[in-house]
């Protein structure tokens, strides 16, 4: 390993074979460079008479933006791409956590540079805090094939493995359609929406496109009065009804019955979760004996009504 100074233009940045980090903001690093300069030299390797960057992408790109040149670099004489890549991998492994997409890129590079799948699974996946199975490897490799705008969204929303995984099931075109629906949602709802779309599609043998461009969803998406979050929530609700029609219908009947009875807000009545048992729960708050008596009296009145019995016929 030699230490030299290179004009920044001598580093051929178009060769990204060793690059695994794509989404970062160099602002803080630029500030640091201005104050103390580049303390840790990036690692470069010589390929086809060009210096290509092995590790230190963030540093070099920040230097380029600041027109810092020449820059100190370490030059490796290693010719084998896998061995060269492993230098960068282990250096980073020791000093920082990898994001979901970085893990995907690392695993893709390992495979591309000829590392055996079994070794990647047994040796590298545990180093990346990932279960050592080929199925996990396949999923990460699929993440690395996602479109740039999808990757950007995953990075910006810091999505977890579980919320990104359902995206593998969709085609590139479908992911593009899905993105505007997903962006306003939090992680849990994001996953819920993807699962509902997939499951409605599989259950009814309906193409995803037909679901996403159904008149009801289009009406929501094209609304001029709803905010992006409201649109996403309404779409989610609609998908839930398609996914769970019988449950939704029973919930609607229950709520409609309460409306018909003009059920008071201060006394809350709810069926067992998913109507799984025949039980109902009534709750109310009170602060003194009178309050308690008033609520009990009201309940007695409500339960004496003929339409109250309808509640027990919801089966």
């Amino acid at each position: 390993m030699k230490r030299e100074k290179l004009d920044i233009k001598e580093i051929f940045l178009k060769d990204e074979r060793f690059r695994t980090s794509y989404h970062f903001s160099p602002e803080k690093l630029k500030h640091s460079l201005k104050v103390v300069g580049l303390l840790n030299p990036p690692l470069v390797a010589l390929r086809n008479n060009r210096f290509i960057l092995v590790s230190g992408w963030k540093r070099v790109l920040a230097c380029a933006e600041l027109s810092f040149s020449p820059v100190p670099v370490l030059i490796t004489e290693e010719k084998d791409d896998l061995k060269t890549f492993l230098m960068a991998f282990y250096e980073n492994l020791a000093t920082r956590e990898f994001s979901l997409l970085e893990k995907a890129e690392i695993l893709t590079r390992l495979k591309r540079f000829g590392e055996d799948e079994k070794r990647i699974t047994q040796h590298y996946l545990p180093l990346l805090d990932t279960p050592a199975t080929l199925a996990y490897l396949d999923t990460y490799l699929a993440f690395s094939q996602f479109e740039p705008e999808v990757k950007k969204a995953i990075h910006e929303k810091r999505m977890s493995f579980l919320s990104v995984k359902p995206l593998v099931e969709f085609s590139s075109q479908e992911r593009e359609w899905l993105l505007p629906l997903l962006l306003p949602l939090g992680q849990n709802k994001h996953r819920e929406m993807l699962e509902d779309i997939l499951e409605v599609s599989k259950k009814n043998d309906t193409p995803v496109q037909q679901i996403l461009f159904s008149p009801e969803i289009r009406a929501i998406q094209e609304s001029k009065t709803l905010t992006p979050l409201q649109k996403a929530d309404r779409t989610l609700l609609l998908l839930r009804k398609k996914r769970y029609p019988a449950l939704s219908s029973m919930q609607d009947s229950f709520e409609s019955l309460l409306r018909k009875m003009d059920w008071p807000e201060e006394i809350r009545i709810s069926p067992s979760p998913f109507f799984e048992t025949e039980n109902f729960t009534v709750t109310f708050d009170f602060e003194n004996e009178q309050g308690l008596k008033a609520s009990l009296l009201k309940l007695e009145e409500l339960s004496a009504r003929r339409d109250f019995a309808e509640i027990f016929k919801l089966k």
Binding site: K202, K203, Y244, A246, S272, F274, E276
Partner: peptide, 11 residues
Amino acid sequence: RIIYEEMVSGS
């Protein structure tokens, strides 16, 4: 397709 029928969380 069996897992895509209408299933809910039981007690």
